[in-house]
Design a protein around this nucleic acid. Sequence first.
DNA 1: CTCGATTGTCTAGCGGTGCTAGGATGGAAG
DNA 2: CTTCCATCCTAGCACCGCTAGACAATCGAG
Lengths: 192, 192
Amino acid sequence: MSVKERKERERAQRERLIVATARELAEEQGWDAVTTRRLAERIEYSQPVLYSHFRGKREIIGAVAREGAAEMAVAVRAAVAGADGPRDRVAALARAYLDFAERNPAVYDALFDLDGGLAFAQEDTPGELKDAFAALLETLGEVAGDGVHPGLFTETFWASLHGLATLTRARRLPPEDTERRIELLVDRLAVM
Amino acid sequence: MSVKERKERERAQRERLIVATARELAEEQGWDAVTTRRLAERIEYSQPVLYSHFRGKREIIGAVAREGAAEMAVAVRAAVAGADGPRDRVAALARAYLDFAERNPAVYDALFDLDGGLAFAQEDTPGELKDAFAALLETLGEVAGDGVHPGLFTETFWASLHGLATLTRARRLPPEDTERRIELLVDRLAVM
DNA sequence: CTCGATTGTCTAGCGGTGCTAGGATGGAAG
DNA sequence: CTTCCATCCTAGCACCGCTAGACAATCGAG
């Protein structure tokens, strides 16, 4: 039976290789450059092997998105943990979020711009996504203010950050003033 | 010489037909369905005709985006004109913006998600885009608050709206609470 | 009115995409 | 040692954006 187990281990390892390579390629050259042919060549297997792990390209994007969500949750929680008081915590969260988006643009796209076939805000939403939202909620729920539902506040604050992240990266907003925009959001939206 | 003029008129008309058809097709079936072949078939010309008007598909997207920006400016100004007092004006603007995004998803994508080859926030930015931003600035600049640059405030408020628009449409946010999120944004961000 | 030049349009095709059917191959089981 | 089965690859499908080159229609000169 250990032969079978070994094969399963190797298979799981190859799956991780596919996801890591797709992410790498996307960060290097953008998702448009992540074609099944190039991806197959990089992992040194033929195209059909990809389809024995994933239904198609969108599922590969989804896998990168889930991985990214888990990392983002870690990054946000780490940033918040190093800050004192509600205001600093919210500001640290906002900076960590935008920083993550800037440093991992392809992952951010996989999460929020592209179609990775993932459900959001539903029962069958992957755990990584639920947890990433929970990481935001932990800090933002504190500053929702009286009579405002913490979840609703978190959604709204998150949407604002998402807007800044995407518009800045798509060169719709000049990047120099990012810090000032963050301060504005934090000071006005959060109730301390 | 009037023969030449007639031909130019017909050519301009055909260009408008291309843009209108691309927009129609995108609203019906999404931008993925807007292929040069399908578009050519709908306008009852062959593919290469498209390339005698536009450098490529991205320029067609850009043309739809410019058209959409002009319409959005009109919609926003109309909504604001029908409201009294700063708070109502800002709320009306926010609703009009999100309403436009919801009613014209393909146009909204052309403007802010896809690459239409347009410059933003620069000298060579198309007039329609500058004017759409101006329409936001006219109302939002009023409520930036002391010591906050009106342009910066407008960018930030706009980013928040954009975040709500995209996340809602991509099913990342449940749509039922949109109105409550708007109220939250307006009441907190704007200084009255 | 005829004829060459120019303009406009089309057919056909290039290299690429995501995805899949079917045959070859190599290792486990009997 | 042979049989069988899982695994993988070659080859190919239909489609994509885009373009070269053939063809037809129109224009201006003689």
